[in-house]
Design a protein around this nucleic acid. Structure first.
Lengths: 231, 231
DNA sequence: CGGATCATTGACTGGTGTCAACTTAGGTGG
DNA sequence: CCACCTAAGTTGACACCAGTCAATGATCCG
């Protein structure tokens, strides 16, 4: 299959590091797979039998405590890598937040190809290093920030990832969240009620608008950045 | 120099993946460096000019909020890798918790050697992947766990990293923390007073003893594990 | 002995969680 | 087309955990 050549993330996923002929080798093992919203690809604590690239859609990585509280540990967008190569168990579940398309490999196949292609490993290393940086920045948020700071930070991050076109005619930054309130709460380590209250507060203060349940319009980006840092 | 051949972490740091001759190449760029307790090797937000391996001692990775609250993002033990290769800025500071010895390289030198040695990159990838797993498990703690659960989890993790010999004659697991109370608080996203209160509580409940300020003796590991999970 | 640093304890406050009621939006079927 | 139903979000009242501020206690060291 030459699906890789026309892949939407051909230039941005870790595969970009492979030349044509090596790409063909990899593509023999790959499998394009549709995932429906809510579907879980990998379960926490189970053997990570597959790894892969996100082609389209948004997925979350999550783990839960003994009593069933979920914490979202990361968010995977198109061209992100998911799963745990060279390991045994996946420490987190991977679940689709939207309908999605992923390109999967069995871990064994991927590991073997990676061993033969240092450039692929280098790309994966680069990506893993920035995932680690990102996870650690999120630790600062979870460890130290107040509810309002968390929500403001979250909206700003979402804005930068999801609003391809800058501002609309009214100077607003508008985007559609792939999250419900409960899912936002799980990202931020808060409850759904607290998230709701903080969003209401930001709306009342005139920093944002919420035209639809999952739609956010940022009116005052600067002030929102202030709220993300200080009280 | 043939320091590498006799290095205390020769078999466990990422260098273990290099054969003799390649190791010699790397060693030409490396510099053994003593670090005194409290000294900071890298600053948050500054260009990560150097990277390296921890040979001896314990260091912390940390970041702080605008108002000066510190959050510890990771702990580096002997054979761990520190710094951010292939990047520009270090997202976190690296500070010694104890007097330590590190083996450093300029980032430029290391990047170049890594490019020529896929095995070295593979080791670094493995290590980075497990650092990422570890950071994400910590996110679950910061996002969802109560103070008592955090402290219990912390003590158990420290026990497994620091108590080489199992139990003493009285069946206790004894170890010396490289942390003061304030530093524990920064790891757990709590205040020093809360940490102190929870440790007192565990002592009163007969699960641990604290023979010295920084010494911990675990009396009832099982019960401590229960406290780390549930209320 | 006195001072400095670190840890502990107490009293109080406040932010976030909990529980419950209500609102809104969207979809289905009569 | 509207009534109803359900799921999701919002709002309010209250409780409780952890933060804050302040005082006390323990160790170490000059």
């Amino acid at each position: 299959m030459d699906a890789c050549a026309h892949c939407a993330v051909r230039e941005s996923a870790i595969c970009h590091s492979l030349p044509e002929d090596r790409l063909e080798e990899l593509s023999r093992y790959g499998r394009r797979q549709n995932v429906t919203r809510g579907q879980t690809l990998l379960w926490e604590g189970e053997d990570s039998l597959l790894v892969g690239n996100v082609i389209d859609g948004v997925l979350k990585l999550s783990a839960s405590t003994w009593d069933g509280c979920d914490q979202t540990l990361g968010i995977a967008y198109p061209s992100d890598f998911i799963g745990r190569p060279f390991g045994t168990k996946s420490q987190q579940s991977v679940t689709a937040l939207t309908d999605a398309m992923v390109c999967t490999f069995t871990r064994a196949d991927f590991d073997a190809v990676a061993q033969r292609n240092p450039d692929l490993e280098h790309s994966l290393l680069q990506r893993t290093l920035s995932d680690l940086d990102h996870a650690r920045r999120w630790m600062l948020l979870l460890g130290q920030k107040s509810a309002i700071e968390r929500v403001a930070s979250f909206l700003l991050e979402m804005a930068s990832r999801l609003s391809e076109d800058g501002e609309d005619e009214a100077g607003r930054i508008v985007f559609e969240l792939p999250f419900g309130r409960q899912e936002i709460a799980e990202v931020l380590g808060l409850t759904i009620e607290t998230v709701s209250r903080q969003i209401t507060r930001l709306r009342c203060d005139g920093l944002i608008e919420t035209p639809g349940k999952r739609t956010i319009a940022i009116l005052d980006r600067e002030e929102l950045e202030t709220r993300a840092e200080s009280a």
